[in-house]
């Protein structure tokens, strides 16, 4: 049997296991089959009495063993790094997968560096190659090129972009073993003084939105985005923006979609005056249905659209808003 896959189970500020963990778990089950049924292990920093709440999630998503560190609920880059490094030295996994969340991307490079190994960031594809090594695929150059990366040392590490892989199905039930560990690590050099919720609510809305109306450089100004907001309101959706619009300063970067922004998976995505650079489209191709409105019939956005409207947004969108008003 192979040495195993270790997954990081991030606990969110609200006290839930981050959804990306279940996506990692599902992928790990698939990878494990190609690695002689390598055992799948998870590490979580959580209070012992919370495990009852989390247990089902681990059992149903195919996790063989969970290492629980009680007493470290407050995230600390250095403490978490030191503890994970110690655990890795003990259980010697060949692969470590971490969600590419803010916390994951803060933690993972610290861990990989301490283990003197490589890390592939923000992956959108994972596979095992014919030599039994992890082949991790990620976008580079703003999503214009995909690169498959191999690591010649162990453990092989990757952070995985949320919402790219499907979450674990509930039929991977295992007889999960929970192991409670302690540590005297206490490298507390960073103090959290305050947390202000709210500013990024828009971004969270993008995460769960069923309808997204997004604007690009061609929206020209904030008034253009107000018009998109009206359309979004009519459709029960939210507004997003391309990097072009954000760089122009006509939309806040909190609503940026694409390689350096959010990946979104709504039912309906309407791209207004977005040319469709791959750095944008890489973040929207998981949408069920994509409508593009652009003056340029050759705009690359139409390559990812289901329905393309060649026309001026300032002509099409107000008309559409009027039509929606009459129903």
């Amino acid at each position: 049997m192979s040495r195993g896959i270790l997954l990081y189970a991030e606990v969110t500020r609200q006290g839930f296991i981050h959804t990306v963990f279940f996506e990692l778990a599902n992928k790990a089950v698939e990878l494990s089959k190609k690695l002689d049924n390598a055992p799948i292990t998870a590490v979580i920093f959580a209070q012992k009495d919370m495990i009852a709440d989390y247990k089902d999630g681990f059992v149903k998503s195919g996790i063989d063993k969970v290492f629980v560190y009680d007493g470290f609920e407050k995230y600390s880059t250095e403490t978490y790094t030191n503890i994970i490094v110690d655990l890795v030295r003990e259980i010697d996994p060949e692969i470590i997968l971490i969600g590419a969340t803010n916390q994951g991307r803060d933690l993972a490079p610290r861990v990989s560096s301490a283990l003197h190994t490589g890390l592939t960031a923000d992956c959108i594809g994972l596979d095992i190659n014919d030599k039994g090594r992890l082949a991790a695929t990620r976008p580079t150059f703003g999503g214009q090129l995909m690169a498959t990366i191999l690591c010649n040392r162990d453990p092989q590490m990757a952070t995985v972009r949320p919402k790219v892989f499907k979450p674990a199905s509930v039929d991977n039930v295992r007889d999960t073993e929970f192991i409670y560990k302690t540590s005297d690590e206490n490298a507390d050099n960073v103090e959290l003084v305050d947390f202000i919720k709210g500013l990024e609510d828009l971004k969270n809305e993008l995460d769960s939105a069923q309808v997204i109306v997004a604007g690009g450089k061609g929206m020209k100004g904030e008034d253009g985005f107000k018009m998109l907001q009206t359309l979004a309101d009519k459709l029960g959706g939210v507004v997003g923006a391309s990097r072009g619009a954000v760089d122009l300063g006509i939309a806040p970067h909190t609503i940026q979609i694409g390689q350096t922004g959010k990946t979104v998976t709504p039912k309906l995505y309407i791209a207004c005056a977005i040319s469709g650079a791959i750095q944008h489209t890489v973040g929207i191709t998981g949408s069920d249905y994509i409508i593009g409105i652009n003056k340029d019939p050759n705009a690359p956005i139409f390559d990812v659209c289901d329905l393309g409207i060649v026309g001026d947004v300032f002509d099409v969108v107000p008309k559409l808003i009027d039509m929606l008003e009459t129903i």
Partner: peptide, 27 residues
């Protein structure tokens, strides 16, 4: 420790239905 084993351009779909007129009505 890491090396690029393969680089490729992302795939695009080419089945977009394009309309040049009556944009709002079509949507």
């Amino acid at each position: 420790p890491t090396c690029v084993s393969k680089a490729f351009r992302p795939e695009v779909k080419h089945n977009c239905e394009k309309f040049f007129e009556n944009g709002a009505e079509t949507i």
